[in-house]
Design a protein around this nucleic acid. Structure first.
Length: 901
RNA sequence: GCGCGCUUAGCUCAGUGGUAGAGCACAUCCUUCACACGGAUGGGGUCGCAGGUUCGAACCCUGCAGCGCGCACCA
């Protein structure tokens, strides 16, 4: 091993092990297993997407959970797959078509276009899957699913049909969020409210019964005023009481419209008069319904004015028309003023343009099993982490709006509804459709097409992508009408790991679907990950170019480095600011681990005898450093078990890091280095090697979920496992390493080790103070040494960098010899006349002053009767002990100062 | 407008009542036979502000401020 490179090179190792795990079928779940089940379904990434850091965090957490569960003896299913991502995928293909062939999807026709999308999916669909594999994800790839698989599509249709029969799905003309670019309706969740700097136009409409008298109105959208059918005022508004029931002239087309009264109008806002455009505003639409007003649509689907009566505006883009309309008002002397104004405008989540509220015929769903779904989270049957998201969920569940599930797209699950050809026009124009039409035979709703298909025409729309995603936990496990062995074993799933940004889109809807179609919750725990931002706190996005490519990071630092680095900084509650240096630290950690093992291998190559020491004998021969590290390992295992239960992934990473680096390498390895030299006794060598192996083999196991590749590699290299065995399949041992040793004995040994470590630190800092920190030949004299110090004298010399340590109870220190009070005695550092006496005097005086202050502080505290009476006894004792300690030190320091003259 | 978070060292963040912590960055030293992707030492914080509870508050309570995020029919 010593001929290997000094630094760990992860790339080849990681590829090798991933292939080996696949070859060994390590990820495949067995539904017939006797072991308890543990399951996760992956949040399916977009099939044509590419991996970003959010995916890395999310999937690393899932992999950690899955791998840990396997170690805990569970039968694990991590079910992977991809989502067809209707709008996103269709838009990509349309763009490619436009750029390469100057064609639109309509030029190709539906069938041909869909062929193109499938081809695109086949070409790009594996990219993100392969990226997940590169990351080391232990998904059961034999069960990979896609939301448009034939069987999955059946589920989607089946669910539609069932909910339609139940009367929860209906069709109707409503105001929907219309995207003028994608040319489809969107759900409320797909609209992002964005503050905009816009203009508020104040205009006046003339009363028909009083020429020269005007009603003042403000609006942000003058381009829609051709669709005005009324002006509304609040009935409680005294300013307008006299106006209710009168008529005013809409400027263009010049037509009288009524002034009506409606509670919705805010008296405080502007002039208290609101123009009503039912076709282009949701609340206007509702007011229109209440008052039986006409609906005049003056915009085309792609956001252009459609109003031949006003030729100046007809055909203009909506934003061009806005300026033009304002100019026209001004020409007519009807524009009073224009103010700068900030308001919230809904933007299309995908197309990034303002959505248009638009009347159109769409399919809607009234959510099923709302109460069960709300209760499941409220009662804690489904546990949210962090818990506060439960409140967000509850709020949404209490204010559910019907879900617009139809999309005017081609890529997706086509609505399983057929219309009779001869009734097509009637049906398409009908205001609404309900289940009664089913029996009339004009409408056919079914998973399979009607038998006499030639007489029917299928609804052209497809369903919202989330209408398939919400079935993911069970539709990936079983076919319609079956209860597969997989479903029986693994549903409900154990943990769901996802981002809080899709709590409404996905999480809430899955819970409802789970209750409705499987009669049970879909998962028991939901862990919401942090949102990853850049160092400026901005979201990662392609357009900002602030999103590092995880593949590049893995090339540079290894998948294990990326995983560990990201997990270590991922906080439980809030967002995380990403910096590449954290990944670098992950890489460094893997390297540290690798080198610790390399050190062990090199020790084997030294030609020095090793005694045969049986496992049982090791503990008996162990010194305090051995016992100490073994005890810390046991403690680590116990702590990790608890922290896993709390899903505190960052803390787990931190504990692993601190143990390996701080305890194992910095302390333990340094303390036992002497045991591995040729000069050491065979027994000491044997015991130390044995302890090393015990700790390292168990530590590799504990670290494995976070850094699967390097731990697997080292377990084999170090001989902890045979060729053909996998660390990922090794169950975690239940027994502590030190099970056979009494707690008091462990504590006694640990306190010795702690004393030596602390003493070494004090000596090093004493050396540094006198600028001999790098010298390893200094002589130390210990006065008043604890009786056991002679046993560990060599180790202390090694750790503190001393050439010689002399125990001398009667040592008479030369004047000004630096001294440190340590847990093992007074340690002097004779400087052989090299010190600057004056500087030393100043240093001592400062130290004395500082300690005196400490003593005063403690005494004041102890003089406080309330403190003594109310504080726990242990705390009071601690304070007292502290004073004794400080005073002892003061005596020493004053003597030293006096000694200097 | 309502709700939820956050505010601790230059940066990123731990720390849920008992003497303020880590990593990075910084400074000095060390190319000592696991590791410079390393080792040693050190400087650096009135824990956002103001009150309150308590013997004792970064931590609990109440206000306030700043930042961020949700939700909402302000034209």
């Amino acid at each position: 091993m010593s001929d290997l490179p000094k630094a760990y090179e992860p790339q080849a190792v990681e590829a090798k092990w991933y292939a080996a795990w696949i070859e060994g079928k390590c990820f495949e779940a067995d539904p017939s297993s006797e072991k308890p089940a543990y399951s996760i379904v992956i949040p399916p990434p977009n099939v044509t997407g590419i991996l970003h850091l959010g995916h890395v965090l999310n999937n690393t957490i899932q992999d950690v959970l899955a791998r840990r569960a396997r170690q805990k003896g569970m039968e694990v299913l991590w079910l992977p797959g991809t989502d067809h991502a209707g709008i996103a995928t269709q838009a990509k293909v349309e763009r490619e078509l436009r750029e390469n062939e100057k064609l639109t999807r309509r030029d190709l026709g539906r069938d041909e276009f869909l062929k193109r999308v499938w081809a695109f999916k086949d070409k790009h669909g594996d990219i993100i899957i392969n990226q997940l594999k590169r990351l080391g994800c232990s998904c059961d790839w034999s069960r990979e699913r896609f939301t448009m698989d034939a069987e999955y599509t059946k589920w989607v249709s089946h669910v539609f049909v069932e909910l339609f029969k139940e009367g929860l799905i209906y069709r109707g003309k409503r105001i929907v969020n219309w995207c003028p670019v994608s040319l489809t309706a969107l759900s409320d969740e797909e609209v992002v409210m964005t503050p905009q700097r816009s203009k508020l136009y104040f205009m006046k409409y003339e009363f028909t019964d009083a020429p020269g008298e005007f009603l003042e109105i403000s609006t942000t959208r003058p381009e829609t005023l051709m669709g005005d059918v009324a002006v509304a005022v609040n009935p409680k508004d005294p300013r307008h009481a006299k106006n209710i029931g009168r008529m005013v002239y809409r400027p263009f087309p010049h037509t009288p419209i009524p002034v009506i009264a409606d509670d919705h109008v805010d008296i405080e806002f502007g002039t208290g008069a609101l123009k009503i455009t039912p076709a282009h505003d949701k609340s206007d639409f509702e007011i229109g319904l209440r008052h039986g007003l006409e609906i005049i649509d003056v915009l085309t689907p792609d956001g252009h004015v459609n109003c031949p009566e006003v030729p100046e505006l007809h055909g203009l883009d909506r934003f061009v028309a806005r300026k033009k309309a304002a100019a026209m008002l001004e020409e007519r002397g009807l524009l009073l003023k224009v103010e700068e104004y900030e308001n919230n405008v809904g933007f299309s989540e995908r197309a990034h343009v303002p959505i248009e509220p638009r009347i159109s015929m769409q399919w809607f769903l009234k959510y099923p099993c709302v109460k069960e779904a709300a209760d499941a989270v409220a009662t804690g049957e489904i546990q949210f982490r962090p818990e506060r998201w439960a409140k967000t969920y509850a709020h949404w569940m209490e204010n559910l709006q019907d879900w617009c599930i139809s999309r005017q797209l081609w890529w997706g699950h086509q609505i399983p509804v057929w219309y009779r050809k001869d009734k097509l026009d009637d049906l398409k124009n009908a205001e609404s459709l309900d289940t009664s039409h089913l029996s009339h035979g004009d409408l056919f709703v079914g998973v399979e097409p009607p038998a006499d298909a030639d007489n029917w025409v299928r609804d052209e729309d497809v369903m919202d992508t989330w209408f398939s995603s919400w079935l993911w936990p069970f539709a990936t496990m079983t076919n319609v009408g079956e209860k597969s062995a997989t479903l029986k074993k693994f549903h409900p799933t154990t943990d769901l790991v996802t981002g809080p940004d899709i709590i409404f889109f996905w999480v809430a809807r899955m819970i409802m679907a789970g209750f409705r179609f499987e009669g049970e919750l879909p998962f028991k725990n939901v862990y919401f990950t942090s949102i990853i931002r850049d160092l400026q706190g901005r979201k990662m996005s392609k357009s900002l170019g602030n999103s590092p490519d995880p593949i590049d990071l893995m090339e540079k630092y290894g998948a294990d480095g990326l995983r560990f680095g990201l997990m270590r900084i991922a906080p439980v509650g809030s967002d995380v600011r990403f910096d590449e240096s954290s990944v670098e630290e992950g890489r460094n950690f893997a390297n540290k681990l690798y080198n610790a093992c390399r050190f062990r291998q090199m020790a084997d190559e030294i030609e020095a005898p090793t005694a045969e020491v049986g496992d049982d004998e090791v503990i008996g021969m162990a010194n305090c450093f051995h016992v100490d590290i073994l005890a810390k390992l046991d403690q680590l295992a116990v702590d990790l078990e608890r922290i896993y239960g709390e899903y505190r992934f960052g803390e787990i990473a931190q504990r692993l890091y601190d143990f390996l680096w701080g305890e194992f390498c910095d302390k333990f390895l340094e303390a036992v280095k002497g045991d591995l030299r040729e000069s050491a006794t065979p027994e000491a060598r044997a015991v130390t090697l044995s302890v090393f192996d015990t700790v390292m083999s168990r530590f590799l196991q504990l670290l494995h979920p976070y850094m699967p590749h390097v731990t697997e590699e080292l377990s084999l290299r170090m001989g902890y496992l045979e060729e053909g065995e996998f660390l990922m399949q090794e169950p975690l041992p239940d027994e502590p390493v030190l099970a056979g040793l009494a707690a008091e004995e462990i504590a006694a040994e640990q306190s010795k080790a702690a004393a030596i470590y602390e003493t070494a630190g004090r000596v090093r800092n004493l050396k540094a103070e006198y600028h001999v920190g790098s010298r390893r030949d200094v002589k130390l004299v210990v006065k008043g040494a604890v009786e056991w110090l002679s046993e560990q004298q060599q180790v202390l010399a090694l750790l503190s960098g001393a050439g010689e340590i002399v125990l001398d109870a009667a040592y008479d220190a030369p004047k000004g010899t630096p001294v440190s009070l340590t847990p093992v005695g007074e340690i002097y550092l004779p400087l052989e006349g090299l010190i600057d006496v004056e500087a030393e005097k100043i240093r001592l005086s400062r130290e004395i002053a500082r300690i005196e202050q400490e003593v005063v502080r403690c005494e004041t505290k102890l003089g406080n009767e309330s403190f003594v009476a109310r504080a726990p006894a242990a705390v009071v004792e601690q304070e007292k002990a502290r004073i004794v300690e400080w005073q002892g030190k003061l005596v020493q320091l004053r003597e030293m100062l006096a000694g200097l003259g």
